[in-house]
């Protein structure tokens, strides 16, 4: 069974069509990268998948469960790290994890063992009883990650998870994604960072202006964009037809920065 299956999804905000007839299938055990410029429709797609938004048409399923019909069951299977870190700023990570584990009705002993290991791996012990508002961006991101992994989700959805992370945490984070799939889990990763998508993802879907432009492994995308041997960044710019635009922007900037 597919971990995620999105069929002909369309979602509009008034006149703006944020997601236009998108179809995506993520295989069980796969790391799938969703790439796209700002406002391309990545986060809207994820929100519909999580049951946070209702689609105009089409359907989204997680392990066969319809997000619209049973969002609670979907959320039980998913660990979600959204792009915006709107945490409970006045709580400490300890209080937040108490809350999440209680809502998810997790077994205390197992959860404690799991949390100890994650906190140690992320070097997070010193901040465990500090108010979240006082944490750095990277430590907030670690808090989100631990929160998403507490219940051993079958599917991990990470929306721009690498922004603001130090080298050690970014490395640990990438390893966590890999370990998660090695243990049979699946990952949907939305990112702007091409190196990470290139090094981590089994397959990549490129979304632009709400439409899915291309799907495949890096080699398949290179062939499609006719950029043999190119980096994912070049492939991405070619497929989203942004090469000329970016070149022009850089030229303008060069002029502006000249004495």
């Amino acid at each position: 069974m597919a971990a995620v299956s999105i069929s002909n999804l369309t979602k509009s905000y008034g006149e703006l069509v944020a997601v236009d007839d998108v179809t995506i299938e993520i295989r069980d055990g796969e790391i799938y990268g969703l790439l796209g410029p700002n406002g391309a429709g990545k986060t809207t797609t994820i929100k519909v998948l999580m049951g946070l938004l209702d689609p105009d048409s089409g359907s989204t399923k997680v392990f066969g469960i319809d997000s619209r019909e049973d969002p609670i069951e979907v959320k039980k299977l998913v660990g979600y790290v959204p792009e915006e870190q709107q945490l409970y700023e006045s709580l400490t990570p300890r209080e937040l994890f108490d809350f999440i584990a209680s809502v998810r009705e997790l077994p205390e002993e197992k959860t404690n063992g799991r949390i100890k290991e994650m906190v140690k791996a992320l070097d997070f012990g010193r901040y465990y009883d500090s108010m979240i508002v006082t944490l750095s961006q990277g430590n907030k991101q670690k808090t989100m990650l631990v929160a998403a992994l507490l219940h051993r989700p079958k599917l991990l959805i990470l929306d721009e998870p690498f922004s603001g992370l130090d080298v050690r945490t970014a490395k640990v984070m990438k390893d966590i994604v890999r370990i998660h799939t090695e243990n049979g889990g699946s990952v949907l990763l939305s990112t702007h960072i091409m190196e990470i998508a290139e090094g981590l993802c089994d397959r990549v879907g490129i979304i632009d202006d709400g439409e899915l432009v291309a799907v495949g492994t890096l080699d398949e995308l290179r062939r499609k964009s006719q950029r043999e041997g190119a980096t994912l960044e070049k492939v991405f710019l070619a497929l989203t037809e942004q090469e000329d635009e970016v070149e022009e922007g850089v030229d303008t900037l060069r002029e502006a920065l000249r004495d």
């Binding site: 409970y88 709580l91 300890r94 209080e95 994890f97 108490d98 809350f99 584990a101 209680s102 809502v103 009705e105 997790l106 077994p107 205390e108 959860t111 404690n112 949390i115 100890k116 906190v119 140690k120 997070f124 012990g125 010193r126 901040y127 465990y128 009883d129 500090s130 006082t134 944490l135 750095s136």
Partner: peptide, 23 residues
């Protein structure tokens, strides 16, 4: 922001309703 000594990382689990109220 102050660096605290490393704390025992654990959770205190209660019912969902109580945890919501506590939060």
């Amino acid at each position: 922001t102050k660096l605290r000594p490393i704390q025992e990382a654990s959770v205190n689990i209660t019912s969902p309703l109580r945890s919501m109220i506590r939060k």
